[in-house]
Design a protein around this nucleic acid. Structure first.
Lengths: 244, 244
DNA sequence: CGACTGCTTGAGTCTGCTCAATAAAGGTGG
DNA sequence: CCACCTTTATTGAGCAGACTCAAGCAGTCG
């Protein structure tokens, strides 16, 4: 098992049961309903509240003056958005689809954390998980091809929100557009479309039409595509032979 | 002031005085001396210790099976390497130059943290600062040109280890090779060399020969190069005029 | 002094971007 | 329910920024 694959296995999902301590947040704050593309917070704003996703999907992103955009993270139900120690948000956040969040004042969290070590643990753990995920993506964006990035993305989504059908195949719902996937992976939307088409062509995945997710037809092959990015017929042995 | 520039100002330096609480680490653990390229830890290893840099520079990196490498962070004196909540290191670490670190068992840190809220605060803050830095770099690697990335890198280094000479100009020592800068920015070393040459050509910086750092001749221009990446003569007004 | 490592510069290539045209979906109002 | 308009996805053609490969040079260290 590769190092990357092992790391994925260590943090399989935020999707399982909520971390101990977070249930303390259940009753407090207010619930907000968001429509697609509705803004939740802007980079640089005073970080007075944070949000727990109840339903739908939120994107955290940074943008340049001339409109280029990089999505930092997607937040699914159970995830915390805008968790920060600093006094300003490090990135903007908006809804991908119809979403609901529980919005809680940061001050409220600090109070609770002071008296609840379990909650402190969970928060530290969430922060650390976020850090690990971002570090992994640094490798994708800096050193991986479009095909590798997309395969990695699908595996990540599979781990977080994937389901399985009766045949044991994995279904991965993708609520975000291909443009947004591109903004997450540092690619143009056309490149995402082409890379998806390539994975379909060699039988690795299948696309749910109209575009709403993928079905993983060959999980092993998808992992290989993410970790080495070579062409389908690529052989590692062949590679090491050619080095005398 | 742009959002990016403001963020840089908020976290000006790890270089100043050490955060309150870290002095608790002063007496404990053992000191290790490292020669250039000597390994400190490997990704996936059991994370039983962490390290505080005393002297020199450490690089944290991830690598793919076929040898591509992405440097996640450079650690300068005062920084903590290998801080983790998980039980395994998320990345490898090795020395860039001759370096010394204080190596402390994670367990020891947890003991101290349990009884010292100030230390806990500092650790949380360090973790958060690391997170912000990585998120900023996600934008660089995903959406910025070689020139913009390099300019951003020089500004980052200026904030963390920059000095100033008697003329008020900033001197930024760069202990790492251009190959390593490339591995940090997701670029080939040749591209780093060319981008540096370009910044020299238009009078933004000067290179300390033999390559050991840069002198910033025009700080404003360097900031512009980092935030918009346009060519030297670029005018924003001209740009918005052309949009009827 | 020679071997080695790191930097520079040029030439050619390639991956992924831009621009553009078309098709497919979804939403809205009559 | 249909006509219309907008948004999103697909596919092609051409382009460009950055990579690879290669040669030359400078500085360092044994």
């Amino acid at each position: 098992m590769s190092v990357a694959a092992r790391n994925r296995a260590v943090h399989p999902a935020t999707a399982g049961e909520p971390p101990a301590g977070f249930d303390r947040l259940d009753g407090i704050g207010v619930i907000k309903h968001l429509v697609p593309h509705e803004s939740l917070a802007l980079e640089g704003d005073s970080a007075d509240r944070f949000h727990r996703v109840l339903r739908g999907t939120i994107a955290g992103y940074k943008a340049t003056a001339d409109g280029r955009r990089q999505i930092i993270a997607f937040f699914f139900p159970g995830d915390l958005v805008g968790l920060t120690v600093g006094e300003r948000y490090a990135y903007s956040a908006e809804a991908i689809d119809r979403a609901s969040v529980r919005s809680v004042p940061q001050a409220r969290l600090r109070e609770l954390a002071a008296s609840a070590p379990a909650l402190r643990e969970s928060l530290l753990d969430a922060l650390h998980r976020e850090l690990s995920a971002v570090q992994e993506r640094l490798l994708w964006l800096g050193r991986k091809t479009a095909r590798e990035r997309l395969a990695g993305f699908l595996l990540e989504c599979d781990g977080r929100v994937g389901l399985h059908d009766k045949d044991g195949r994995r279904i991965v719902p993708l609520p975000m557009s291909q443009l947004e996937i591109g903004d997450y992976l540092g690619l143009a939307s056309e490149t995402v479309s082409r890379a998806l088409a390539e994975l379909v062509r060699d039988g690795t995945i299948e696309i749910v039409r109209p575009f709403a997710g993928v079905i993983i037809r060959d999980h092993r092959r998808l992992e290989r595509a993410a970790d080495e990015g070579g062409p389908p017929g690529y052989s590692a042995a062949l590679f090491s032979e050619s080095k005398p």
